[in-house]
């Protein structure tokens, strides 16, 4: 892309969503995760490693904070004073929230992370120069930096294991940032099929790897614009609106009985992932 085009379309590249005159059409990929059914089994995380060619860095590098898990399970203990089995663990799968007004996008010095028309927060490895500013500005801390040239130097995939790498996903080299993509390779594949058949992607036609692996079906993923999609129905039932920084349901009584919420909504990144959780007595 030439500099001329980049400048000409600057507002579009740096466009933050949603705004009234530019609705998402025909796709807005979104997710909802039911934390009340999540058992914290880590299957989603493993599936993500397998699908997206994520290097397994090992204990030592993990302790240095160089882990690459695009999907991580965060643990919270609600009963700190008790022993382990009764500690009341709560799990929260955390990955890139594909914010509509993503803080990471505005700070990238080279425009390597942008917003796409179908509501994804793209990360282009070829363009990334590794300033790590995006990671610094991400309130969810879901961006991971390649400190090493994992495929060659670090032997994260011994000889035969390279055959399990997904050819639809780049193997990232040293010095680039990476993060959850909402399995964009799968999205693009179904979008292409749908387009060739003259329709839009149907509900259930595409799954993310984490959703596919989840044994308790806690994760649902789909097109938020499509009124038939499960995600759309869940968001509507929970009265969570994409373009709100404070949900209507929470304004009047302070809290609502409904379970749906988005993390750090008040910072106005307009995340595309909704979590569902019953507020527990112990948490109040």
């Amino acid at each position: 892309m030439s500099v001329g085009t980049l400048l000409e379309n600057w507002s579009e590249f740096r466009h933050f969503h949603p705004v009234d005159d530019k609705p998402h059409d025909p796709y807005k990929w979104a997710m909802s995760i039911d934390l009340d059914t999540c058992t914290g089994c880590n299957a989603c995380s493993v599936a993500c490693y397998a699908e997206n060619n994520i290097p397994v860095v090992g204990k030592e590098k993990f302790q240095h904070g160089q882990q690459m898990h695009w999907m991580r399970i965060e643990r919270y203990w609600s009963e700190d004073d008790r022993e382990f089995p009764d500690q009341g663990a709560q799990f929260l799968p955390m990955m890139c929230q594909q914010c509509e007004a993503a803080p990471c996008e505005t700070v990238c010095p080279v425009g390597a992370t942008n917003h796409t028309a179908d509501g994804l927060n793209s990360q282009i490895y070829n363009r990334c120069i590794g300033s790590r500013y995006c990671s610094a500005n991400c309130p969810f801390k879901v961006r991971y930096f390649n400190w090493y040239d994992y495929p060659t130097v670090d032997n994260v995939w011994p000889a035969e294991m390279t055959r399990q790498l997904n050819p639809d996903v780049s193997v990232r080299g040293k010095g680039v940032m990476e993060k959850c993509t909402f399995c964009v390779q799968r999205l693009r594949a179904v979008e292409v099929t749908a387009k060739s058949e003259g329709r839009i992607v149907r509900e259930g036609e595409v799954q993310t790897a984490c959703q596919q692996a989840c044994p308790s079906s806690a994760i649902s993923f789909g097109n938020l614009v499509d009124p038939e999609s499960r995600v759309h129905k869940q968001w509507a039932a929970q009265q969570v609106v994409l373009e709100a920084d404070e949900q209507e349901k929470n304004k009047e009584h302070g809290t609502s009985e409904l379970r749906g919420y988005r993390i750090l909504e008040e910072l106005r990144p307009y995340p595309s992932v909704m979590y569902l959780e019953q507020v527990r007595e112990s948490a109040v």
């Binding site: 892309m1 379309n9 942008n114 796409t116 028309a117 994804l120 793209s122 282009i124 490895y125 070829n126 363009r127 639809d168 996903v169 780049s170 993509t181 964009v184 390779q185 693009r188």
Partner: peptide, 9 residues
């Protein structure tokens, strides 16, 4: 299509 993720993996 002109968004980066259409062509870049």
């Amino acid at each position: 299509p002109n968004d980066c993720w259409h062509c870049h993996k």
